[in-house]
C-alpha cells in the first residue's frame, strides 16, 4: 500500500514545491512588513504540517496502546520525527520574522513558550525511543498522547493571553492574493510530510522484519 502511495505523494510534493516560489514571488508585498512577510508562507505551513504529524502521532499512539497494533507504533515513530522537523522549521522561521516585527528574536509570550514546550516533548519522545530500550514503546505511546493534548492549548493560546504573536483569526480573513500562495504552501508541506511519513514508516516496518529474521536465525543456530 505505502509502496504505491509514496511515488504519488512524492510527485505531488514536487509539483507543489516547484509552484510555490512562483506563487510566493507573485504575491503582493504586505504594506507594513514588506518582503519579510513572505516568511509567513513557510512559517504557517510548517506549523500546519507539524500539527498534522502530531495528530498522526497521538492517534497512532492511542491505537497502539489500546489495540496493540504494531504498525501503529511504527507510524507513531515516523510521525514524531516529522513533527520535530516541521516544528524546527516553525521555530527557525518565527524569530526571523520576529526580529523585524518586534525588534527582538524571541519573546517569552504564551504562544512561543507553548511552541517550545511542544518541541521539547517531541524531542523527549525521540530520546526515549533511542535510549529507552525494550518496553519503552508503550511508554512512548503514553507520551505521544500527552504531546497531542498540548496542541489545542497551543492553538488557542493567542486567544487566552494577550500575546505579541499574531492571532490565529487573521488566516481566514486573508485576501486571495495572500491566501492562494499560503494555502498552496500549506498543501505542499502537508503532502511532503505525508510522503516522508509513509517512507519512514516503511523503513521502520522493514527494520522490525529484519530484527525478527535475525531472531529466527539465532533460534535455529
Amino acid at each position: 500500500m505505502t509502496r504505491r502511495l509514496f511515488p504519488v505523494l512524492a510527485g505531488l510534493s514536487l509539483l507543489f514545491f516547484v509552484g510555490a516560489p512562483v506563487l510566493i514571488v507573485r504575491a503582493p508585498y504586505e504594506s507594513t512588513m514588506g518582503l519579510v512577510q513572505k516568511i509567513f508562507y513557510f512559517h504557517f505551513a510548517g506549523w500546519m504540517a507539524m500539527f498534522l504529524a502530531i495528530f498522526v502521532l497521538g492517534i497512532a499512539s492511542i491505537i497502539f496502546l489500546f489495540r496493540r497494533i504494531r504498525s501503529a507504533d511504527q507510524l507513531a515513530v515516523a510521525a514524531a520525527e516529522q513533527a520535530v522537523i516541521f516544528g524546527l522549521i516553525g521555530l527557525i522561521t518565527g524569530p526571523l520574522w520576529g526580529v523585524k516585527a518586534w525588534g527582538v528574536w524571541w519573546q517569552w509570550d504564551a504562544r512561543l513558550t507553548m511552541a517550545v514546550i511542544l518541541e521539547l516533548i517531541l524531542v523527549a519522545y525521540l530520546l526515549l525511543r533511542q535510549y529507552g530500550g525494550p518496553g519503552s514503546d508503550r511508554l512512548a505511546a503514553g507520551l505521544g498522547i500527552f504531546a497531542m493534548a498540548n496542541v489545542p492549548f497551543l492553538y488557542i493560546s493567542t486567544e487566552i493571553w494577550r500575546t505579541v504573536h499574531p492571532r490565529t483569526s487573521v488566516v481566514p480573513t486573508l485576501p486571495v492574493d495572500f491566501g492562494l500562495p499560503l494555502w498552496w504552501s500549506v498543501a505542499g508541506f502537508v503532502v511532503i510530510c505525508l510522503a516522508m511519513l509513509s517512507a519512514r514508516r516503511r523503513l521502520e516496518e522493514q527494520r522490525a522484519t529484519l530484527d525478527e529474521l535475525y531472531l529466527a536465525l539465532e533460534d535455529e543456530a
Binding site: 521539547l120 535510549y131 529507552g132 492549548f153
Partner: peptide, 30 residues
C-alpha cells in the same frame, strides 16, 4: 499526576533514572 504515570511506566525500561526527568519536565513545564 504525570510523574506517577511516567515513573510507573519507566520501571521496566533501561536508564530510567535519566529518562524520568527528561520526559517529565517538558510535559509538566506548563
Amino acid at each position: 499526576s504525570v510523574g506517577t504515570l511516567f515513573s510507573a511506566m519507566l520501571v521496566r525500561t533501561r536508564s530510567r533514572a535519566v529518562l524520568l526527568p527528561v520526559l517529565l519536565y517538558p510535559v509538566t513545564i506548563p
